[in-house]
Structures are given as structure tokens and as C-alpha cells.
Simulated scan of single mutants.
Amino acid sequence: MNQQRPLSRTSPGTGPGSPAAAAVPVLNVGFVLTDNFTLSAFSLMVDQFRLAADDGDRSRPIRARWQVMSSHPEPIRASCGVTVSPSGPLAEPTGFDYIIVVGGLLHGGQHVDDETVAWLKRGARAGVPLVGVCTGSFVLARAGLMTGRRCCVSWYHYQDFLEEFPHHTPVADRLYVIDGDRITCAGGGGAADLATALVEKHLGRSAAQKGRHILQLDRQRPGSESQPHPPIADLVADDRVRRALLMMEQHLADPLPIADIARRLQLSTRQLERLFQTVMGQRPAEFYRGLRLRYARFLLDTTGRSVTDIALEAGFSDCAHFSRQFKAQHGFTPSDARAQSPGPMARNLAAQRLFE
């Protein structure tokens, strides 16, 4: 992985009079990677900065620079087992436009050491924007740096965050949240969208588009766009029903037969039917269908995909069957729902105003 040496006013290895030697970077970014960080969140962000920093795909840090910092010289292990060597020690925080903390696996151990926490607090006191990506939001909250701020977390960790920080305000229905000089991102693909927004703010729209085109990423999503549907299972106390709901949520495009779900839970189909009726007030097949229709409505509201594609993605065999079921539940057709939605373009325009 391409690593940069500590920040300087000229690019290392360039001769006098070269563009790299003359340029002062417009965007300086410092990364802090936690123990067991999420590699995809880090790589999606750093590659956006890399591609925006230079012409073509030459990776010279001219218009933007980035570095991975650590309080110790040892490589930092990602949750997938890959290690990244830090480019240098913790540098002066005011030298950065953003300090980005990339989190990963939640576990009982310490994600960053006391020296790093003290350094983050120093950056906060100096007014440097702090960014928490994935469970980096937990790191910032544990350091007392999210008090009174909205904090974006993945729906997957929403309950974990609420239990650990009951006096904070977690947001799990958006890709990322900007609250003054604190920015938090749920992670996953949203990390690429946040990086695009930061590049566009500092380096312009063409630089942001270039990175996404080279990485073959689709349209830029604003932070206000919804995360993929959150699980209902977390709200259910009965362990057997909760496990059944998780199976359903993980098999929306290829629905499992109810008998298969019952078998995996070591229940008879009749037992599962009675259990669902008691806990959820519906038969499992009815609830499963409603879950898939809810997912379809989410796709209609937040993507530009065709109704036929959405029908297949939500596990319906054909568009006509999907349309009948959708209208029976909502009282209007999928085409009517699409017409009522502001659409991706309108949401993008609204997001752009945040950075103007």
C-alpha cells in the first residue's frame, strides 16, 4: 500500500522547479488506524485522496497529502489480517485539514492508546476537524470528543453505541453526519462518499469525479442518504424470532422457505408459525413478504434502478407480481412511489449546498 512520508511543503524526490516542488497541497489528511481497523473504509478514502492529488494515476501527493500516523512504529493490523505500516509518528495536529480515525471490530481491548487519545484531544482543542469512520465514532465518543454532537453509526452497531453512550445522539439512518468540526461516517461504501465530498470541497468537482470514475464507483451519495435498511431483529426480545428475522433480512433477494427457517432453528413449521403470531402478530410468511416490500420501497426512494430490477432484488419472481403485492400493502403502485420520491439528483443537490 502506498505510504507517504511525514508532511513537508514539497513532495519528496522532486527536483527544483517541478510542479510537485512548487505546489503547496490544498488538502492535508492524517489517518489514525485502530487495532483491527476496517481495511475497506481506509482504502476507499485514501484512494480518493490519492487520485485527486495528481494528474492521471501517478499517485504523486501534489494537491493532496495523506499519512498514517501512530504512537508506535509497529504495523497496524486490519480486521482482515492485512497490516499497514505507519508513515511516521503523531505529527503536529494543526498541520492537517482533517484527522481521520478509522475504526473496525468492536472488542474489549483498547483500540488506541492513551497517547493517541491525548493527541486527538489536542487536535480538537486546536479546532482541527476530527472524522470518525466505521467504529471510529466510538473512539471519539470514548475520548469525550462527541459530547453534544450528533454521531453517525452503522445500524449494525446502533444498539452497541446506545448502550455504551446513553447520553449521546446516535444517527443510524444516514451515510455520514457533519456536525461542526466533527464528522462521523457509518463506514462501508459511505466512506467513499464522504471522501468524495471532502475532495470536492477542497479540490473541486472534477477532481472528485475523476477519483470515482477511476475507481468505477457509481454516483456520489450525499450524507443524508439512508443507509441500507436497518434490521428489525434488534428490536425483538425472543431469541428464536430474532434469529429467524436475521435469516430473513440476510435472504431478501433469494427468500428462504419458511420450513427451512424453522429447520435451522430446530423448530417445526407449526411451532414457528405460533411463535411468530405471538411475538410479531403475523405469520412468518406475511412478515417476510412485508420485509421484502419495505426493502423495495427503500430502493425505489433512494436509487434510480428500474422497477423490474428492484422487484428481483427484493425477491419477487416478476414485476407484475411485485406490483400487485406492493399496491396491496401501500395502496399505490411502485411507479407512483417513484414519482413521489425526490430522487437521487435532488438529494445530491441538497448535499452540495452543505459544502458551498
Score class of each variant (00 low, 15 high):
V24A: 09
A126K: 06
S137N: 06
S317H: 02
Q340A: 07
V177K: 01
L198T: 02
L130P: 04
L140S: 06
M247Q: 15
T302D: 06
G13I: 08
L162H: 12
P342I: 06
L162F: 13
V241I: 15
L175I: 07
Q159K: 13
L252Y: 08
D160N: 11
P19Y: 05
C80S: 15
A141R: 08
G187N: 00
S18E: 06
T83Y: 12
F42Y: 13
S137G: 13
D238Y: 05
E164K: 11
P93M: 10
M247L: 15
A20H: 03
I214S: 02
L293N: 00
V279P: 01
R5K: 14
R182V: 11
D47V: 05
F49K: 03
A78S: 15
P170A: 14
S306W: 03
V112Y: 08
I232E: 06
E74G: 00
F322V: 00
T147V: 14
S59V: 11
P86E: 09
Q227W: 12
R125D: 13
A41V: 12
Q48W: 01
S43Q: 10
I214Y: 01
D181G: 02
G136N: 03
R289E: 06
G127Q: 04
M345Q: 15
K121A: 11
S79G: 04
P6K: 03
R205M: 11
A314I: 01
R63W: 08
A311F: 00
G148Y: 05
T184C: 10
V82N: 00
C152S: 09
G189R: 00
H213Q: 09
L194I: 14
C134H: 04
Q340T: 08
E225F: 07
M247C: 11
R122C: 14
T38S: 12
G331N: 06
S306A: 03
L130R: 08
L291G: 01
G211P: 04
K201L: 00
A314D: 02
Y156R: 10
I76A: 03
V24Q: 12
V177N: 02
P231H: 15
P230E: 10
Y176K: 00
G95D: 15
G180Y: 02
T196Q: 08
A314Y: 01
N348Y: 14
A20Q: 13
F287Q: 03
S87L: 11
L145H: 04
